[in-house]
Nucleic acid binder design. Structure first.
Lengths: 164, 164
DNA sequence: TTTCGTGCAAAGCCTTTGCATCCAT
DNA sequence: ATGGATGCAAAGGCTTTGCACGAAA
């Protein structure tokens, strides 16, 4: 995700989440704060397992159970901070949905690289199609599969080690 | 899927599948034939559970076990006859990939209904984006999530029992 | 104090698999 | 006969949930 500029946000993810909890009458516990921080400490895509191990490696004693992580992921998705982007091998993969511009992905079938792109006309199309069907769009997932520039070049070997 | 015109195909799904099995040195058993026919008897989207119940309602005694259905779905996907299109409520939903035109889906988060749509300008956009990134597109998967017309209507309760 | 949240383990769900039996070549 | 295929039930893998304990307000 590093090649897209971060959007200027007035409110930090923590604050945004705090707000969300407020409206729901929920509490910002230490565990919840720990998770939000861990999630937004890196812009990488991640699945639940990866998040759990990042949390379990903490040396400050702020450990969080797997159940709580699952419960938190739901909250983060509901609150608009996170969104699921893909599901390779039955593991849901998430990415930041807040403080980051809307985008979609070109996915190289060869090396697995994810290339993010933004295209506004896409939304226009979706809106039009939705309207024609009396449908109210809340989100979309567009995955474009193919071969990236690197892998199209004959010289270089595909980067098999690249993940997600 | 019924409002999309079927593409003319020289070979029937059964024949195509038979061919595939041949190349793999596998057999076309009665069970496999039954499943291919049942799958291509209707153009509707379906999940494994639905296919299983359709099969179990047969009166001709041609029943097939759930395991075999799962094993067959893999084969049908591998052979290019079927493709997974969405995963509402954690159930993989499949559709015909052979003898049917390219299209995308509106997916109702409420009742799980899939609405197909075709939009040519979408491909133009993808091509343009791909070119800008030196990417060669081979396929795409676009899932638009939201609320369908039925579920938007306040009168009627969302159809919780409807699956797909 | 009282309500909400956490952790643990158990349960759920869909899917895959081991294995004995069966069947098409 | 002889592999591959089927069915059944059991096992897997990820996710959800019931419940008692613990922590905010």
């Amino acid at each position: 995700m590093s090649d897209l500029a971060a959007v200027d946000v007035a409110v930090s993810p923590e604050d945004k989440f705090r707000e969300y909890l407020m409206t729901k009458g929920m509490r910002l516990t230490t565990e919840r704060e720990t998770i939000v921080r861990e999630v937004f400490a890196s812009h990488e895509h991640f699945d639940v397992d990866q998040l759990v191990s990042r949390l379990s490696q903490r040396t400050d004693g702020k450990r969080v159970s797997r159940s709580t992580v699952y419960r938190m992921i739901s909250l983060l998705v509901e609150s608009g901070l996170l969104r699921p982007v893909a599901r390779p091998n039955d593991r849901e993969v998430y990415e930041h949905d807040y403080g980051y511009p809307q985008h979609d992905h070109l996915i190289c079938k060869e090396c697995g690289t994810l290339i993010e792109f933004v295209d506004d006309s896409l939304n226009d199309i979706l809106e039009r199609v939705a309207e024609q069907n009396g449908f109210r769009v809340s989100a979309h997932r567009l995955e474009v599969y193919g071969k990236c520039a690197d892998c199209c070049r004959p010289k270089r070997r595909p980067r098999k080690t690249d993940r997600i």
